[in-house]
Design a binder for these strands. Structure first.
Lengths: 334, 334
DNA sequence: TTTGAAAATGAAAGCGATTAAAATGATTGA
DNA sequence: TCAATCATTTTAATCGCTTTCATTTTCAAA
């Protein structure tokens, strides 16, 4: 039952110094005589003293903790960002409070408030979109918030992204150049800002190529963690005479690919697919899916790095960083 | 600059009551006159008061936070567990401090101590194995720790698992029954307890079938997040005349599958594969890989549920729970 | 020696909540 | 009407640490 209760006071008494001195050595404050430092350190080791981060947080008003809001940890796109975030965070000695939001506005607001209540020093927000209401909640706090892989239409909040608009132009153009004139745009039905950029890019690329935009070729799939498999994407595209698709989500791209192959469609000869998440899933499918390459890990890492600057009130030269993307032509394009 | 600094004291003053009373209404304590409760609630809403979880944690010695140690968030096996953990945690109003350990002993010890310093009310540990040193660290604390999907050889710590030993027996037997007599066992080289169980199960199944155990058919792959693709698994098995493999990791299974197909090997006619993680990756490969089905989400969920009981010092009737597994015969077995 | 600035240490006031214990107020039966 | 009882509310100590400010040491220069 002897709950671990070695406090700074115990160390102080045992070492024959004051709490203040112990605090100084724990925090690496230089104003301590080497001999005292040694004496205190020894006691700390002997007693296995472990500073209480909660008390420290209350006293110093810094918790060295950041809140990370993620739609779903099991989504490889976001978990890849999360990994970048965590690595940089631990490099700077920050801890991470991680919560799934399911991309649901109410839940996003809820978890945001939860992490703020935990007195995090900063927040990294990931989502398909940045909802207006969530943005408002964010504006009510002074805690710095950085968006990772999440577009903010007015570009008010600090964020790390790639140029989704351009990426979709690139993807679409590639398919056009390969001779396709009926190209579908397939994405999750989430009404996200990011998607609007994609759609705009898709339209723009079509127009540039003198192809007309056909609303019916924009296919939205209800986002559901579990039942993706039940959707017959292949029929939807084949029935419309489509010969290629720009897909906004790797899982959807793979779903489509597998369904097409099952029906005997030759990919890429008779149907081309280009995806855009660049999650590790891409490496698994056969043929490997052609994809926009996004520096996922870096998106997270850079976001966290920026956040550390904001938390320390350092000069952050750039609050909006666009990382480069490219297209990796694999087996689903000619 | 006006840092959000509405404290319980502000609310008390504004509502004309004492801090204690505010505290009571915040915590739903019944000993408050309805009219006072209303009055205080109104002030709370008006001031947008949000209780400081850190101060609360210090005063009450409960942080409603649990530490979750995971080898790697981008590993779908573990992130699936994490998702189960988080869902149950938020159901019980616990927050999660999540840290990647990379399955590295030093890092595991480090992050364990970090979360303990954060005064978490409990810890969920996931790993390929439970290292002796880590176990020792765990034994030094009174904070409850539950293992999820992680075997503890002496079965001392509370844990939620499936019967890995039996699962491997089942897998191996299936392959034997299908007529294979040279079966490889492929896994990551991590010297994990879980693996030892697998190996034992593999041996046992072979013996039961009067097949001899051949050390050289046990293939270990260095665990590396990034360069799995560079390993030529197919050669390793084909050169040995193996006709089937029990694989302990989905990514490895898919790697092997894709390599075999590239070489023109007919799966499952000429080579059978059975995997054991049951991560969402399984649904992606073609043919779909036959696998041991593990209730991943439930492993996490049940672990978290058990942890809530331990944290509340409720009666937990069972500290070691084995969830059922089965085998889902898909396209890589006859 | 004496002196005074710099270095090292200590005392004590918070940080924002919880929670006993004490105090106050309301209600009720005799 | 008054004491006893119960329901509310307040007082004040406490949680374990940081941090300011004051005090004591130390030590080179006078």
């Amino acid at each position: 039952m002897a709950k671990q209760t070695v406090t700074i006071y115990d160390v102080a008494r045992e070492a024959g110094v004051s709490m203040a001195t112990v605090s100084r050595v724990v925090n690496g404050n230089p104003n301590v005589k080497p001999s005292t430092r040694k004496k205190v350190s020894d006691v700390i080791d002997r007693l296995k003293y472990r500073p209480n981060a909660v008390a420290r947080g209350l006293a110093s008003k810094k918790t060295t903790t950041v809140g990370v809001i993620i739609p779903d940890v099991t989504n490889l796109y976001f978990s890849s960002l999360a990994r970048g975030i965590d690595d940089i965070a631990s490099m700077y000695n920050y801890n991470i409070i991680l919560t799934n939001s399911d991309g649901d506005v109410e839940k996003e607001k809820k978890v945001l408030n939860t992490v703020l209540a935990q007195q995090v020093d900063g927040v990294i927000f990931m989502g398909h979109q940045l909802n207006e209401e969530v943005k408002e909640e964010i504006s009510l706090t002074d805690t710095p918030v950085v968006l990772a892989g999440t577009v903010d239409d007015e570009n008010e909040l600090p964020n790390i992204i790639i140029d989704y608009h351009q990426a979709t132009i690139d993807s679409t153009k590639l398919l056009v150049d390969n001779g396709n004139n009926k190209i579908a745009l397939i994405g999750l039905d989430i009404d996200a800002e990011k998607q609007q950029e994609s759609t705009a890019g898709y339209k723009e690329a079509l127009e540039d190529s003198n192809l007309s935009f056909d609303e019916s070729l924009v296919i939205k799939v209800a986002p559901n963690r579990n039942f993706l498999e039940e959707i017959d994407l292949a029929s939807q595209v084949l029935d419309k005479g489509v010969t290629a698709a720009v897909v906004e989500d790797d899982r959807l791209a793979i779903l489509l690919l597998n369904q097409l192959i099952e029906r005997g469609v030759d990919v890429p000869e008779d149907f081309e697919i280009i995806s855009s998440n660049n999650s590790p899933l891409i490496d698994i499918s056969r043929p490997k899916i052609t994809t926009v390459t996004q520096p996922l890990y870096d998106l997270g890492a850079v976001a966290m790095r920026l956040l550390t600057k904001l938390m320390n009130e350092e000069e952050a030269d750039e609050l909006h960083i666009t990382l480069p993307h490219s297209i990796s032509e694999n087996g689903t394009t000619k």
